[in-house]
């Protein structure tokens, strides 16, 4: 029912299904199963970068370009959840106001809900929902990212890393992490002092060797372009959209797109399997048994690694010799 409504273009059904996924509602997985055959058509574009580099404004400007080119657009914008209260202030729509009146654009704000890595646990499935809904281009804007929030590269086909002038010297550009996942670099706020310096630092980094994306199995045949934009004035955004198309064409040539898809799905399967196994294991063991082991670890009668192994085995139904190891055994 919900799925039928969604496929017929009902925005409320899209919104509701994303909420069910976010809340971990068991019905969501049944619906996603039905939707899965309808997915796989959209071009998924990740947008990441430090807070304040202008990601939301850039997504807004890109969405307008895509709409002019006749594409429909989905946007998922992730902001952090408070680790203390579980609440979140989601403010990315403020920079996307011009898009609200356009029915060809669907924007969803999403709180990270405890997930680190720049995305929420529900992001990948929410992208699928928008994909099945028929959006041609889906932009996923990450939490303002530092250096290690690289999950987006597993969700997106094309990842844009947004920089702004004056954020760091060239050594920052040599570090591992977020710079390695870029398929396209953008130096936004390019009217500010130091924009060329930032471009040069990125170019120098690339000159030393194109970032190796191990999953593609081959380095060097895609050199990430570096583009300057002023997102709030919508300057430099058309050429950026052209580069996104060029990257998609590159992925479609050869085995790149299929390889990324396999990598993406393998990673997701691993995550889901871990979640299932953990839930099953905890269920079988029961909270009393866990509490008992926690007590032993806290008392230094058992170390955490041995305890985890012991519990995994006993949950698996393999008989464990002795009910619990003596402190002397556990120390080995």
């Amino acid at each position: 029912m919900l799925v039928q409504r969604l496929l017929q273009g009902d925005r409320r059904a899209v919104a509701r299904l994303i909420s069910l996924v976010e809340d971990g509602d068991s019905r969501a997985y049944r619906y996603l199963t039905e939707l899965y055959p309808h997915t796989g058509r959209a071009h998924i574009i990740g947008v990441t970068g430090a807070p304040g580099t202008g990601k939301s404004s850039l997504v807004s400007a890109l969405a307008k370009v895509e709409r002019r080119r006749g594409r429909t657009v989905g946007i998922i914008s992730v902001d952090p959840t408070s680790p203390f209260t579980g609440g979140a202030l989601l403010g990315d729509r403020i920079r996307m106001q011009d898009l609200t009146a356009d029915r060809g654009v669907f924007i969803r704000s999403m709180a990270s809900r405890g997930r680190v890595g720049g995305l929420a646990a529900a992001t990948t499935d929410a992208v699928r929902v928008l994909d099945a809904f028929g959006k041609d281009k889906i932009f996923v804007e990450t939490v303002g990212a530092g250096q290690a929030e690289v999950d987006i590269a597993k969700t997106a086909h094309t990842t844009i890393v947004v920089e702004a002038p004056g954020l760091g010297d060239e050594i920052q550009a040599f570090k591992a992490g977020v710079l390695e996942i870029a398929d396209v670099f953008v130096v936004n706020k390019a009217d500010r002092d130091g924009a060329d310096k930032t471009v040069n630092a990125l170019r120098a980094m690339l000159d030393l060797g194109t970032p190796i994306r191990a999953r593609d199995g081959q380095a060097g045949d895609w050199r990430p372009p570096i583009l300057k934009t002023i997102a709030i004035e919508e300057k430099g955004v058309e050429p950026l959209a052209d580069e996104l198309e060029r990257h998609l064409a590159y992925l479609k040539s050869g085995d790149h797109l299929a390889a990324r898809e396999r990598e993406r799905v393998a990673d997701e399967l691993e995550t889901l399997l871990a979640r299932e196994l953990l839930a099953d294991c905890l269920h079988r063991l029961g909270s009393d048994r866990i509490a008992q082991i926690v007590e032993q670890i806290a008392n230094r009668a058992l170390d955490p690694h041995s305890a985890a192994q012991l519990l995994a085995r006993s949950a698996d139904g393999i008989p464990v010799e002795g009910s619990a190891p003596t402190p002397a055994e556990a120390r080995h």
Binding site: T85, G87, G91
Partner: peptide
């Protein structure tokens, strides 16, 4: 509302 654990979408 954020501090009370809700997700607040501020639209400006």
């Amino acid at each position: 509302l954020r501090d009370a654990g809700m997700e607040v979408i501020y639209t400006g």
